[in-house]
Design a protein around this nucleic acid. Structure first.
Length: 188
DNA sequence: GGTATGATTGACT
DNA sequence: GTCAATCATACCA
């Protein structure tokens, strides 16, 4: 079951929270989203802050598409474009609980410990073989597959990771009690 | 044209 | 705990 097309046509913060518990597959490989971060164009930490550029063009495109960027020259990280009126916003997918194609992810990661397969944006990118070729693609069409969750999952909130600005904005969301977060969340 | 920087990870002291 | 890897992009000249 795919997501409603309007799912991503909302505030990034709302979408980030609602993505927790959704299953993400890329060519049949992936798992349950257990950690996300929201990036709003008014947020100085966001790539879309300051307007549209060559890198972040996808963030200003249609909601429900992918925005892929190179992090620290080493890793590929994936966002889901989410905003109203193409103002530039997105949700960083930080961690998955591996459920599909685990053997494939282990081979790509060179690691057999499930907790290290997708726990972090860079690891997730490597496990799913994310590349810039996916930038701008519709998440509701192959090779992507998003499965709507069947119930509401308990969500925890915390500060975002690795930022030099905007750290005070608590826009990181996680599936409560998950063993697959990239970092722990503050005790609730 | 040149330089600074980063939504990270993994290895090492 | 500290630090290097590595490069596309952004920004300045």
């Amino acid at each position: 079951m795919s997501l409603d097309p309007k799912f991503f046509a909302r505030e990034p913060v709302i979408v980030a929270r609602d993505l927790i518990g959704v299953t993400l597959l890329l060519d049949g490989v992936g798992g349950i989203i257990v950690e996300t971060e929201a990036y709003d164009p008014l947020d100085p930490a966001s790539h879309s802050f300051g307007g549209k550029t060559a890198r972040n063009a996808s963030m200003f495109g249609p909601p429900g598409c992918a925005y892929v960027y190179r992090s620290y020259g080493i890793h590929w990280c994936m966002n889901f474009v989410a905003h109203k009126s193409r103002i530039g916003g997105g949700v960083l997918i930080r961690a998955l609980e591996p459920t599909h194609g685990i053997a494939i992810m282990e081979a790509r990661r060179g690691c057999e410990r499930p907790k290290l397969l997708c726990s972090g944006p860079g690891r997730l990118g490597q496990a799913l073989a994310i590349t810039r070729a996916l930038d701008g693609l519709n998440l509701n069409a192959p090779p992507f597959a998003l499965s709507k969750r069947q119930k509401r999952f308990p969500v925890v909130v915390g500060p975002r990771i690795g930022l030099s600005r905007g750290v005070e904005t608590p826009w990181r969301f996680g599936l409560k009690g998950s063993e697959f977060h990239s970092r722990g969340f503050p005790a609730t």
